[in-house]
Design a protein around this nucleic acid. Structure first.
Length: 718
DNA sequence: CTTAAATACTTTTTT
DNA sequence: AGTATTTAAG
């Protein structure tokens, strides 16, 4: 295999085998390349079978890409190799093994929302004051304990005062409920394998032998359970290679411990350390700026990236009046970079600290017809209508899933209200059975005649599919259910734009199920449900779409773009809130800024507003972020575009520029179209691009509809 | 029990 | 401003 494409250090990192290896890989130093070559080297030159390699990445998308790149380097099939996130690898292990520790192998995965609902239910059952025991905050506490591997039993021994006592009680019950529901939350996904390994050492041995070589990417962002997993799996053979950069550690709020990387040698014993410090991504200026800022941090291992790339442009600072003005100026930059200069839309990214910032930007981009893609915020699979349908599927696969039961027992409305539901809960608790099971002895339930019938029908419906779902494929089951519950009618009868959109989303879900089936042979309904729970927005991101990307800096980790625009560089927003007061938190914000800058290959724009609205209130004056002041003055252009804000506000709705920006689409704002159902209309707005683009169309009779390009089948009228 | 209207709450960041 | 949750009316 040809290793000529690597520099000396990279090559060393690839060829070094034996014993623990820590690779400090600075931003843009080619760590993905090193990892892929190392895996290929292990298979091709060392002769290690692919099924004996475990590679852990930060996102599913990164996993897919890595697997694909390795495959391109080799001529043998590597599909048996385990590549994935900690969560997906763990889920895969547990699907086979979790019955050993008292769960059903068909367990469901509860996302944040589900687990929130469960916590809330527990607090209600205990009749605690929801002002003192705020479900969200309790949930955060529990998650934190889990990340620190503090069990309910252990916590109950260390309590101190009323709040702690109740908190510990909630935690205990929450955990019991999860088990009763055959459900795991995200944290459990990491903890349960550890539990399994400690109770059944032979299972650990099995995986230690299976995963002969362990590689971990983004190691600086691993938490305690993740560390334990890596440690246990590689304890015997000690063939483990981790890659990371302490300067890019940005997940401590999720329990990630920067000491995992800083103390690697102490934990894993005698190990080799390699530093990759040549950057291939950014210009000298960007690198110098990034380094100047991050080197203010005290807790970091000293290193400095260098590059052969040229000096490049200075960083540009954009001063704006408020967030609206900011959006217009950013739009202006986008148009300059795409129309006059050499960049295409997909080479630009707008980064921000909080998802909420996307709204103002989105408004302007949509109005001006600039194709864009937003990553994050309300995710597709977290939409109400999607979760509702998925709850049906979940309950069919796992009848013990109480959260899903509660969600759909009265959706669409069947006449089952709060009181009826409470009765079911009570009996389930008394008999220690699932909600669905309670319906078997319906006579014990003192409910009205109408309720009784609905409940029996509901039970019958779920039962029917429980028997069916092994025989049929996921897509046809789903569409059958939709017919059975008459969901389409439910939405169309509402006759609102909102409901119509919800139905299109449901159709899109059906589509993605079909997609999933086609891509994965022999996949079951439960496989799909697992995929859905672990999928993130970034995994759905199509980077080749000709559109500007908008996302948080956290989501941008590991990505690169020729032009990066960072919005909202104001004290209190970035660095966010009170982070400015605690040294450790401020340092994490600074690392986040470092990550933002080092995403850029050629150009960086930094914008801030002099006033910003929060929660739709009045604009509140704000000041430039300290991070701007921390940049070296000589490398920054402060005077860039000091245009009067007023002029920028009245940006003409220029159709010529729309055309240029999205040459592929025959549709632009103002296009006359015809729809087979709604008749003639005119496009008012376009969101997104390609098949998934959404058109807002004004039809005759002042009827406004929001349609997805793929399904709308609009005909252009000349 | 259902629907509509009123009110409360949201903004860290995500697997 | 937008969404979720609670309350009041039917």
């Amino acid at each position: 295999m040809n290793l000529d494409q690597l520099n000396k250090k990279q090559r060393e990192a690839v060829e070094l085998i034996g014993g623990p290896i820590l690779i400090f890989a600075g931003a843009g130093s080619g760590k993905t390349r090193v990892l892929t070559y190392k895996i290929a080297h292990l298979v091709h030159n060392v002769g290690l079978p692919p099924e004996n390699i475990l590679a852990v990445t930060f996102t599913n998308k990164a996993a897919d890409e890595m697997k694909q790149r390795v495959q391109e380097l080799l001529d043998i099939d590597i599909s048996s190799m385990s590549v994935g996130t900690f969560h997906s690898i763990s889920a895969r292990i547990l699907r086979r093994e979790i019955h050993m520790i008292g769960y059903n192998n068909d367990f469901v995965i509860y996302d944040q929302g589900d687990s929130h609902a469960l916590v809330k239910g527990v607090i209600r059952d205990m009749e605690l004051d929801e002002k003192t025991f705020v479900p969200k905050s309790i949930q955060a506490h529990i998650s934190k304990y889990k990340n620190q591997m503090i069990s309910p039993e252990y916590l109950s021994k260390t309590i101190n005062g009323y709040f702690d006592e109740k908190l510990s009680e909630i935690y205990t019950i929450y955990q019991n409920e999860l088990q009763a529901n055959d459900a795991l939350d995200f944290d459990d996904l990491l903890l349960k394998p550890l539990e399994l390994f400690s109770e059944f050492p032979n299972r650990l041995e099995f995986y230690q032998q299976k995963y002969r070589y362990v590689l971990v990417d983004e190691y600086q962002d691993t938490n305690r359970p993740q560390f334990e997993l890596v440690y246990l799996l590689s304890k015997v053979h000690r063939d483990v290679c981790v890659v990371g950069d302490d300067d890019q550690s940005i997940y401590s709020w999720r329990g990630a411990d920067i000491n995992n990387i800083l103390n690697f040698s102490e934990s894993f014993g005698k190990s080799s350390i390699i530093k990759l410090e040549q950057n291939y991504r950014s210009t000298q200026n960007i690198l110098d700026c990034a380094w100047t800022v991050v080197s203010r941090n005290t807790s970091r291992s000293e290193k400095k990236l260098w590059t052969d790339n040229n000096q490049g442009d200075m960083l540009a600072i954009i001063e704006c009046k408020d967030e609206r003005d900011e959006s217009w100026k950013i739009l202006k930059i986008i148009q300059e970079e795409t129309i006059r200069k050499e960049y295409s839309l997909d080479e630009l990214v707008i980064l921000y600290r909080t998802n909420a910032q996307s709204r103002a930007l989105e408004d302007v981009l949509r109005r001006e017809g600039v194709p864009y893609q937003i990553i994050g915020g309300v995710k597709f699979y977290e939409r109400k209508e999607i979760k509702d349908v998925i709850a049906y599927l979940r309950l069919i696969v796992n009848p013990n899933d109480g959260i899903s039961f509660d969600r759909i027992v009265n959706f669409p409305a069947r006449g089952i209200g709060k009181t009826t539901l409470e009765k079911i809960h009570k009996i389930a608790k008394r008999e220690n059975s699932s909600y669905l099971h309670v319906l078997e002895n319906i006579d014990e339930l003192s409910v009205g005649k109408k309720q009784k019938k609905s409940l029996l029908d509901f039970r019958q419906l779920i039962l029917k599919y429980q028997q069916e779902y092994h025989k049929q494929d996921a897509a046809s089951i789903t569409s059958d259910i939709l017919l059975d519950i008459e969901l389409k009618n439910y939405y169309t009868n509402q006759n609102t734009q909102d409901a119509a959109e919800r139905w299109t989303n449901v159709e899109e879900l059906l589509n993605s199920i079909t997609d999933f089936q086609e891509h994965r042979e022999d996949s079951t309904l439960s496989d799909f449900l697992e995929e859905v729970s672990l999928l993130t927005d970034i995994d759905r991101w199509n980077e080749s779409d000709k559109a500007v990307t908008l996302m948080t800096i956290h989501s941008a980790k590991g990505l690169e773009f020729p032009v990066v625009i960072v919005a909202g560089l104001e004290e209190g927003l970035f660095p966010l809130g009170a982070s400015s007061f605690e040294v450790e938190e401020l340092e994490e914000e600074r690392r986040l800024f470092y990550v933002a800058l080092t995403r850029a290959e050629k150009k960086v724009y930094l914008s801030y507003a002099q006033a910003r609205r929060r929660f739709g209130g009045p604009p509140i004056p704000s000041v430039q972020s300290r991070f701007i002041h921390e940049l070296p003055k000589s490398l920054v252009n402060y005077t860039y575009r000091q245009l009067s804000a007023n002029k920028e506000y009245h940006y003409p709705n220029n159709q010529a520029s729309n055309k240029q920006l999205s040459p592929k689409s025959p549709y632009s704002i103002g296009t006359q179209v015809e729809h087979k159902l709604f008749g003639r209309g005119k496009i008012l707005a376009i969101e997104g691009v390609g098949d998934s683009a959404k058109f807002t169309v004004l039809f005759s009779g002042n009827v406004r509809k929001k349609l997805i390009s793929k399904y709308a089948n609009l005909i252009q009228i000349k």
